[in-house]
């Protein structure tokens, strides 16, 4: 095991794993943002978020077949571009709608309930989504159309950075920047931050909490939708259980960064991506998951509210 990686070429080795980790990490970060935003507003660990992501990828898979039947990379470039664009527009819309609907029907009546009640409801929603996914596409992993080239963009350096990797970065980074700008500078974003800090006071100054919460669920859902499309195109295989594993990583990322904190979620995602891939490379793949959760525990021991979480004093 160890010999294998010791012998791999120096230029390709570490840098390559780091690169892969960063690309995967930005994917986790995108999902983690959905967790963290919802948590920031209503302190709900939304266990259904990962499964929403799964349903999103199933939906995107349908879009590859339905309007233009683009299922291989042999299709005309324009058709591929149009299909990817269509996925990137419709999937987030669908996921946002579903997320808002779920909130409306299931979480909204429980706003004043204890946290555990809402979490258990979220677990219930997660079960239902998973079952829907099972009915929808069956239990076998399904190939997601391989639409984007695997050609290396930086040949000669010993590293491999393909069009696919570029696609991930080109979608996730602007999305995250847009989100940060939105939360920081728009009126709705400011209302979100106010509601997160103090819901009662926010309502006193005229902020409609229900609308803010709905908007948060919409944005979180849309981010899951974007992540679903990017995941499908990048990993190229989807199945009904993928929401669980990826959701768990993303949730871990959100907590690692300090749950409720947007830059924290991004940082947490990147850390988990890099740690996971380097762990696979140097510790062996079977230990990499254990390593991720090990790092999480160690970091929380020293920073009990996550990497970027505010060190609030316990309210008594």
């Amino acid at each position: 095991m160890f010999e294998l990686f010791a012998q791999s070429d120096a230029a390709g080795g570490f840098g390559q794993y780091l690169l892969l980790g960063l690309v995967l990490g930005s994917l986790y970060a995108l999902i983690a943002l959905g967790y963290t935003m919802v948590y920031g507003i209503i302190e709900l660990i939304n266990f259904a978020h990962g499964d929403l992501f799964m349903l999103g990828s199933f939906f995107a898979l349908g879009l590859a077949v339905w309007p233009m039947d683009v299922v291989t990379a042999d299709a005309p470039t324009a058709a591929i571009g149009a299909t990817v664009l269509l996925m990137l527009v419709l999937t987030p819309l669908g996921c946002a709608g579903l997320n808002v609907l779920t909130d409306r029907v299931i979480y909204k009546p429980l706003r004043t309930s204890p946290k555990l009640t809402v979490i258990v409801s979220a677990i219930g929603v997660s079960f239902i989504f998973m079952n829907v996914g099972l009915f929808w596409r069956g239990a076998t992993p399904i190939k997601f159309p391989d639409l984007i080239s695997d050609a290396n963009l930086i040949p000669g350096t010993g590293l491999r950075f393909t069009w696919k990797d570029l696609m991930v970065v080109a979608v996730t980074v602007p999305t995250m920047i847009a989100l940060t700008v939105f939360v920081k500078f728009t009126a709705l974003g400011k209302a979100m931050r106010a509601t997160a800090q103090n819901p009662a006071a926010a309502q006193l100054v005229g902020i409609n909490a229900d609308r803010v919460i709905a908007a948060t669920f919409a944005i979180g859902g849309a981010l899951a939708g974007v992540a679903a499309v990017v995941y499908g195109l990048y990993i190229k295989s989807v199945d009904y259980q993928m929401g669980f594993q990826n959701g768990l990583y993303a949730f871990t990322a959100a907590v690692l960064g300090g749950i409720g904190n947007i830059p924290g979620a991004v940082l947490g995602g990147l850390v988990i991506g890099v740690v996971g891939e380097l762990g696979k490379a140097y510790l062996g793949a079977k230990w990499s998951e254990a390593l991720i959760f090990g790092i999480l525990i160690v970091i929380l021991l020293f920073r009990p509210t996550g990497l970027l979480g505010a060190r609030t004093r316990e309210k008594v």
């Binding site: 794993y17 990826n246 696979k280 793949a285």
Partner: peptide, 10 residues
């Protein structure tokens, strides 16, 4: 696991 790229690179 979700992806095997790192191991397969090696």
């Amino acid at each position: 696991q979700g992806n095997y790229k790192t191991t397969l690179e090696a």
